[in-house]
């Protein structure tokens, strides 16, 4: 694959690869700590999606700067997987809410030592 005309773009808006990676890392960290710290199952679920989006950002940036397309193709697979996960996950959350009338993690603690 021929090199992309990045040099021409750099003068117009100089966003380096590192900037994208920092953004992805920050998004990933927000998602990760959100999963660990938040109490509402739905918010936890959104944080999980945020982590996948962070991966997507990094993937597209790498793909662009390395001049190969397979990273962009990978994004479609990630989106599909995320959609499947959401479909199953929300079904479980709804079924659980109908049994227990709550989605707060601190009240979902019947299984324990």
């Amino acid at each position: 694959m021929s090199a992309l005309p990045l040099a021409a773009l750099e003068g117009a808006f100089a966003v380096s690869l590192n900037a994208y990676l920092y953004l992805a890392a920050v998004l990933f960290a927000i998602g990760f700590f959100g999963v660990l710290l938040r109490k509402n199952t739905l918010v936890i679920y959104m944080c999980l999606e945020l982590m996948l989006v962070a991966c997507t950002v990094a993937l597209v940036a790498f793909s662009r700067y390395n001049g190969v397309l397979d990273g962009n193709v990978f994004v479609f697979f990630i989106l599909t997987v995320a959609a499947a996960e959401v479909a199953v996950g929300l079904a479980i959350i709804v079924a659980l809410f109908r049994r227990r009338q709550t989605v707060q993690v601190e009240e979902l603690n019947v299984l324990k030592n």
């Binding site: 998602g31 999963v35 993937l59 790498f62 990273g71 959350i93």
Partner: peptide
């Protein structure tokens, strides 16, 4: 409800681990 609660716990931890794995793969790919 116990089976559903187990499912939810597996869902959250499983999705978390998938995201960690994916981020690792993306960095190696990059």
């Amino acid at each position: 409800p116990l089976s559903l609660e187990a499912g939810l716990k597996y869902l959250v931890t499983g999705a978390l681990s998938s995201a960690l794995l994916l981020f690792g793969i993306v960095l190696l790919y990059g």
